[in-house]
Amino acid sequence: MSFTLATWNINSVRLREPLVCKLLAEEGPDVLCLQECKSPVDKIPVERFHALGYEHMVAQGQKGYNGVAILSRLPLKDAGSRDFASLGHARHVAAKLENGVVIHNFYVPAGGDVPDREVNDKFGQKLDYLAEMRDAFHADRPGKSILVGDLNIAPREDDVWDHKKLLKVVSHTPVEVNAMAETQDAGGWVDVTRQDIPSGQLYSWWSYRAREWDLADKGRRLDHIWATPDISSAAHGSRVLRTARGWEKPSDHAPVFATFDL
């Protein structure tokens, strides 16, 4: 069985329903994981998605904030969700495909603007969230699983436009990068994107503040696809659909893709 998976922080699934449909129609991933849906589950516009062949969905919704959803052409079952760090946020949902693969869709807190939990509660929430993910993977080491989502951390020097300038900027600080590494190591997760594209600048997010975002190219790789070691070698074809950042009324994130032959 071969399937292609995409992950995309859509920044409001209702506002950007036409962009989701454009992606589904033109790129045709078998599974699309969305973050920051900003919608209760019953308000997600599933009718047009169904019409395009995406008849299956699991989701956790929240009015106006957060929210995660997994749309699929392939049958899947709800595999639960967890409220990491007890924030009361809709930031995680999991689904199981018929071949037994479990897909975890995460939206890790952004962490605010100041990288100091003593003066910025949001940064503390981010670190706590990652720590609980780490502990969960230690307690129940995942297998035959894929983890995707907006993890809000660009871990490598070539995942940001300027490593030195961003060392004190939330999303690339050493404390966040170390926390992410501990979480990744706890589950034995393999960074599929960098397995396929081992070197070179690679971004999935560009700020709305830069009108000439493409020309300035001051991006960060905040969106990730990981897999457990038992299936990571089956992954290939990783790419970022950079052009989606230039679509009309876009999200500030671009979709990230990978294909699995299982």
Rank of each mutant, 00 (worst) to 15 (best):
M1W: 15
S2M: 15
T4L: 00
N9W: 00
N9V: 07
N11F: 06
R16Y: 01
E17S: 14
P18E: 03
P18S: 04
L19G: 08
L19C: 13
V20R: 02
C21E: 11
L24E: 04
L24K: 02
A25T: 13
A25C: 09
E27W: 04
V31H: 11
Q35F: 10
V41K: 00
V41C: 08
V46Y: 01
F49S: 03
E55S: 11
E55W: 12
H56Y: 14
K63T: 11
Y65R: 10
Y65D: 04
V68K: 08
D78K: 06
A79M: 06
A79Y: 11
R82H: 15
A85N: 12
G88S: 09
G88L: 12
A90P: 11
A94P: 10
K96I: 10
K96Y: 07
G100W: 15
V101P: 01
V102H: 08
H104L: 07
Y107S: 03
V108R: 00
A110L: 10
G112A: 00
V114T: 14
R117E: 13
R117I: 08
K122Y: 09
G124S: 06
Q125C: 05
Q125I: 07
K126R: 08
Y129M: 04
L130Q: 03
M133V: 14
H138W: 13
R141I: 12
P142D: 03
G143M: 13
G143P: 04
K144T: 09
K144H: 15
I146T: 01
I146Y: 00
D150W: 02
I153T: 13
R156F: 12
E157A: 12
D159I: 06
W161E: 06
W161H: 15
D162K: 08
H163L: 04
H163S: 13
H163R: 12
K165V: 06
K168W: 08
V170C: 04
S171D: 05
S171N: 10
T173L: 02
V177K: 14
M180S: 07
A181Q: 15
A181N: 11
W189M: 01
V190C: 03
D191G: 02
P198I: 10
S204F: 07
S204R: 01
W205D: 09
W206Y: 01
S207Y: 09
Y208A: 10
A210C: 12
R211D: 14
W213G: 09
W213V: 02
D214H: 10
D214S: 11
L215E: 13
G219Q: 02
R221M: 04
H224G: 10
H224A: 09
I225A: 02
P229Q: 08
S232P: 04
S232G: 01
S233N: 13
S233Q: 13
A235I: 05
G237N: 11
V240N: 08
L241T: 07
R242V: 07
T243D: 15
A244L: 09
P250C: 06
S251N: 05
D252S: 05
A254S: 15
F257D: 00
A258Q: 04
T259C: 00
T259N: 05
D261R: 00
